[in-house]
Amino acid sequence: MVKEQDLKQLVMEILNEMSRGAEPSPTQPSTPPQGAQEAPSGQEGELPDLTQVDIRTQCLVPSPKDPAALMAMKAKTPARIGVWRAGPRYKTETLLRFRADHAAAQDAVFSEVSDEFLAKNDLQVVKTECADKDQFLTRPDLGRRFSPEATETIKRLVGSPPKVLVYISDGLSTTAVETNAIDTFKAMAQALDRQGIKLPKPFFVKYGRVPAMDVISQVTGAEVVCVLIGERPGLVTAESMSAYITYKGTVGMPEAKRTVVSNIHSGGTPAVEAGGYVAEIIKLMLEKRASGIDLKL
């Protein structure tokens, strides 16, 4: 049986060999296509961090017939195309990258938003009826509801009914929230301020699902409610956040009444740009008094 230490050493040798560039064989190009990125090399005794390589700039196909066309195609999508193979199997680097991205997705789902993030941004916490992360993942219905005590806390935090209310929730990716939420909120607040709309101080809903915003809309009397929430992560990124927005939302309302701006992350719509765009949508909602499919964007 192969020992774990021996297996780790073997993987390190393979990756270091790839990063140095092995002597080209008849099926391998001597130089990568122009603009292609090579795998990083790790420190002595450490595995290189494959997640630091943008797979859109990495050519893993030996001797492609049209390197320029391949790289142009890869540049347009983060999907795993042109990864090559060893017989019928993925090559080592591709498999390890898959496992690393899958691990990042799992971390985003199962981890908690840090106390440091909440304290740094002075976010008061209101929890849904979920007792813990496990219950949040297995009982979505509890992530849509608040206890009477939590409801009173929301009323106290918001105060008099605002025209627009924006809050933050963990959802299914704490990584997305910690990476994008504050920059998005600040851009929204600045853009709405120019329209004469002052946003109340945001708060944080722990273990929150999207429809929790309907409860908040009803108890606060806000005309427009927007939640910045982490989306279910995939293998492309674990940092994708969305903004869900409703006009006079109510509990039990159809999902079609929500407007959503998704893919807010560095590889999609950057946080600051998304904040400005969401602010424009909110302005239009207030003018048209509608959201979701009733709002023509």
Rank of each mutant, 00 (worst) to 15 (best):
Q37K: 15
A72N: 15
A36R: 15
P26M: 01
F185H: 04
G276H: 11
S147C: 10
M241I: 07
V53Q: 14
N263L: 09
P64N: 14
E287S: 00
E152A: 14
E93C: 05
F204G: 05
V158T: 08
I216M: 04
A39H: 05
K198G: 03
P29G: 04
A104L: 10
D101F: 01
E4Y: 01
R232F: 00
S30N: 14
D107M: 14
A222M: 12
T175I: 12
T94N: 14
I168W: 04
P64K: 11
Q5I: 03
L192E: 01
V158M: 11
T237H: 06
A290W: 03
E239W: 02
L95M: 14
L10H: 12
V158R: 13
L10P: 15
N263R: 12
T94P: 09
I281Y: 00
P48I: 00
D141E: 15
S169V: 02
C130R: 03
E46Y: 11
V109Q: 07
A108D: 05
E152N: 04
T31R: 15
G252C: 00
A131I: 13
I154P: 13
V164R: 11
R156W: 01
V236L: 14
T138D: 07
D122V: 05
G221Y: 07
L199A: 06
Y244Q: 09
G21K: 14
V2R: 15
S19K: 14
Y277T: 02
P62D: 02
